[in-house]
């Protein structure tokens, strides 16, 4: 047991280092390639009059931080979601927040004429919040026993589809919204500025600890509802709290960066073989691995096509789709 704990701590430390190193590497890349020494100087001895230092501080650092936080939030939400629904294939995107965020985005373009990424953050957050509330109500979160996982997923699918239909209607009514939406929907950390990040950080500072708390609360439920209840767990409350945490994490991320697929679905599967079945460890590990993976996708998106950037969300899906298929092909036990 003792040996296990220390090896798990070592694994978590390696994941953290990997994420931070990748984040540092991501500061080199961009329209103007910067040498390592300049990046380092900008971090340790910041000089506001130096343009290159300003690029690092105002654009690349917020972008790398956003990728770390967003990817981490999605990874953690994925681990929670798969445990809550007892379905290894559940993706936090199933809870309908992406559809809600998309509707918020197109309405703000259509009605308010918003075009810049930073103008889309709060409408997306409002839409995601509305969708999440609907999903929680329809999913049975107000019942004494708490939400039923299957019903929650169905409610998420239905609400997500409803919001997507409304989004399509607006996209067809106004060409301007399609022009902005088709870039937003790829998902990525490109347009994130320092002020966006500063505005969203307090919200993440609340929801990430909530996610961690949810992991600790959900962990005993692996024994089954009845056993957990006998141990003194308030099953209904735990389910509601966990769902709220998942929805908050995903809603914040989609508002910040647009929809990013696969991190929530795949990361917990990468983490479990390394850290075992304990949800508390898996949630922390998924946060760290999700963060590293999002930064990696952000870097690769800048390298795949020379002279062009592919958004991190799209890169993630281009890598994630085939790897999911490989996972399914070469591991017998994965099934729905």
């Amino acid at each position: 047991m003792k040996r296990n704990t220390s090896s798990h701590l070592a694994t978590l430390a390696i994941m953290t280092t990997l994420g931070l190193v990748l984040a540092f590497v991501s500061l080199w890349f961009g329209v103007r390639p910067l040498p390592t020494s300049t990046v380092w100087q900008a971090l340790v001895a910041f000089d506001p009059s130096n343009t290159e230092h300003m690029i690092v501080h105002e654009l690349r650092l917020p972008r790398a931080m956003a990728a770390l936080i967003g990817g981490g939030a999605l990874g953690m939400a994925g681990a929670l979601m798969q445990s809550l629904s007892r379905n290894p294939l559940a993706d936090p995107g199933l809870l309908g927040v992406n559809g809600g965020a998309a509707l918020g985005v197109v309405i703000s373009i259509w009605v308010l004429g918003a075009t810049a990424q930073s103008q889309l953050v709060f409408p997306a957050l409002a839409g995601a919040g509305l969708a999440a509330t609907l999903v929680l109500l329809l999913g049975g979160a107000v019942r004494p026993r708490g939400p039923d996982p299957t019903r929650l997923i169905l409610a998420g699918a239905a609400v997500g589809a409803l919001f997507l239909a409304l989004t399509w209607a607006i996209l067809i009514l106004s060409r301007e919204s399609l022009d902005t939406y088709r870039f937003w929907v790829l998902g990525g950390f490109t347009g994130i500025t320092k002020s966006d990040l500063v505005a969203l950080l307090p919200l993440f500072a609340v929801s990430l600890p909530m996610g961690l708390a949810a992991a600790f609360l959900l962990a005993p439920l692996i024994l089954g509802d009845d056993t957990a209840r006998a141990l003194g767990v308030r099953v209904g409350f735990v389910r509601v709290f966990s769902t709220v945490a998942i929805v908050a994490l995903c809603g914040l991320t989609v508002s910040m960066a647009g929809p990013i697929a696969f991190i929530g679905l795949v990361v917990p599967h990468l983490v479990r073989p390394l850290l075992g079945a304990d949800l508390r460890l898996v949630a922390i590990g998924s946060f760290l691995t999700g963060a590293a993976l999002a930064v990696l996708a952000d870097i690769l998106g800048r390298l795949i096509l020379p002279g062009q950037e592919i958004e991190a969300g799209a890169t993630m899906a281009l890598i994630g789709g085939p790897s999911l298929i490989l996972l399914v092909r070469f591991r017998r036990e994965v099934a729905l």
């Binding site: 697929a261 696969f262 899906a317 994630g320 789709g321 298929i325």
Partner: peptide
């Protein structure tokens, strides 16, 4: 897997 990849 295929749907998500093709979708992107």
């Amino acid at each position: 897997g295929i749907t998500l990849t093709l979708g992107v």
